[in-house]
């Protein structure tokens, strides 16, 4: 997917971006963005594979109810990307098989 312009530009000014690492790749994040937003804005839709069926999952409810967007952050597994703010230097691992 062409991921240019997935961040809305009109009507908003973001503060100075910082970097986070997602599966070793450096990505820009803006203060106030959730990890889910940073991943989505960079065209990453699949956040994990389920333990049992191995199916891909990503953001579904976007409000912390469904626990589908779980990622590993700085070594802590099963963090909800949709309600967790990105912090400078975060090391995010998608929970792929």
């Amino acid at each position: 997917m062409d991921t240019q312009n997935l961040r809305i530009q009109k009507g908003i000014t973001r503060s100075k971006p910082f970097q986070i690492q997602v599966d070793g790749q450096l990505l820009f994040a803006y203060p106030g963005e959730t990890l889910g937003t940073v991943l989505l804005a960079n065209g990453k839709r699949a956040f994990r594979h389920t333990m049992l069926s191995g199916g891909a999952r990503g953001i579904y409810c976007g409000m912390g109810v469904c626990f589908e967007c779980l990622v590993t952050v700085n070594g802590q597994a099963n963090v909800r990307a949709c309600v967790t703010l990105a912090q400078p230097g975060d090391r995010v691992k998608r929970q792929f098989k």
């Binding site: 937003t37 989505l40 839709r45 956040f47 953001i59 976007g62 409000m63």
Partner: peptide, 19 residues
Amino acid sequence: PGILGAGAVMRMVKTQWVL
């Protein structure tokens, strides 16, 4: 992935400013 709730999309666009 890519199939989301309508409320999720509404919040994403209106408060996280991402499509």
